[in-house]
Design a protein around this nucleic acid. Sequence first.
DNA 1: GCATCGATGTGTACACTGTCAACATGCCGG
DNA 2: CCGGCATGTTGACAGTGTACACATCGATGC
Lengths: 194, 194
Amino acid sequence: MPDRSRYHHGALRDALVDAGEALARAEGLEGVTVRRIAAACGVSAAAVYRHFPSGDHLIAAVAQRAREIMARDMFARLDAAVDKPPIDRLREVGESYIAFALAEPRLFSLVSMPMTTPPDRPDDPNAADLVRDIVLELEPPGAVDEQRVASRMMLAQASAHGLAVILRDFVPDPQARAMLIAGVLDRVGVGLEA
Amino acid sequence: MPDRSRYHHGALRDALVDAGEALARAEGLEGVTVRRIAAACGVSAAAVYRHFPSGDHLIAAVAQRAREIMARDMFARLDAAVDKPPIDRLREVGESYIAFALAEPRLFSLVSMPMTTPPDRPDDPNAADLVRDIVLELEPPGAVDEQRVASRMMLAQASAHGLAVILRDFVPDPQARAMLIAGVLDRVGVGLEA
DNA sequence: GCATCGATGTGTACACTGTCAACATGCCGG
DNA sequence: CCGGCATGTTGACAGTGTACACATCGATGC
């Protein structure tokens, strides 16, 4: 909560992203607006432009934040699954992705936006790198077939993303969701090992 | 091209959807705006509301139009593949979906919008029904396992949609796209038959 | 043939959006 | 202490969706 007796905010950039995240959680993309984010920080809309070249860049920063939140859950799950075989860890990642999409559907719509802005820290491990590392473990030692790696990565990412979106938009029932997640991920597992 | 000497347009609703389609093709969702669509028809913005309860309904109608265009290609491909086994026809559908997404990326962003409005003709066969019919052929005669059908449908739809989106947003190179489509659809085929 | 009525289009207005230019404030280093 | 610069404000402009009152026209009943 910013002290509005002060003319200068102090840490506005982070506060803007925080407010954007909250707004996105509550109302989805429609509600995430430069003016409303600024108002939530007790600041004028123009102040945003001291920290972001455009409103889209602010949205992109919120999206990046959302990706980091999602990544945290993925890493937590993977830490608890270090002993499992790669195929099971891939499933953990997929389940995490889908669970996030269904738990925070509006935030997720930011996650799945194409990245218009380079991430603040490009070295940060993102979901794609994560998947790649695990997929590499499926390769026979010393003989990495890049094309096989790529198609496996794509299958893993595409099916998780597609499933998340379809369940979010068209399957409201939680039980049906759980059934479909299990059934589809089983089949994806078979396709991944082929 | 409407005759602007007449006060009344005559077939404004269809003209609006046509203009919306053209605008979506050219500029994507951002360019699809009530006022610009109306202007393209030589009509005031308020006239739109005689035919659609809201601008979103107009957008939804354009999206429905886009789905019909996509469906036409699917049916054409299926007509040319009636003799192939179900798994191959499923692949045709998936390839059609992905090809449309990559050929008309902006129109495709409308296709993949959640349907906010019921389709004009709910009996029109949509992509989901199409997939279901083919998936049913994979079932052993007389013993349809609904859960297996559902998970196969979902895998088919989710992987095609996810792959389309990821390729569109992150893989510009046509050759890489073709490689990935082939590789992923091969694996999806394996998963579908499991 | 003519009046009237409903369907359809126009004009104007309001609240909201992103963005910019000009101005105000206050913190930090010389 | 004071000047400069980062950071904030105000006000404006164009563009958005949408509602209300009004205009126009085609068809329908007499």
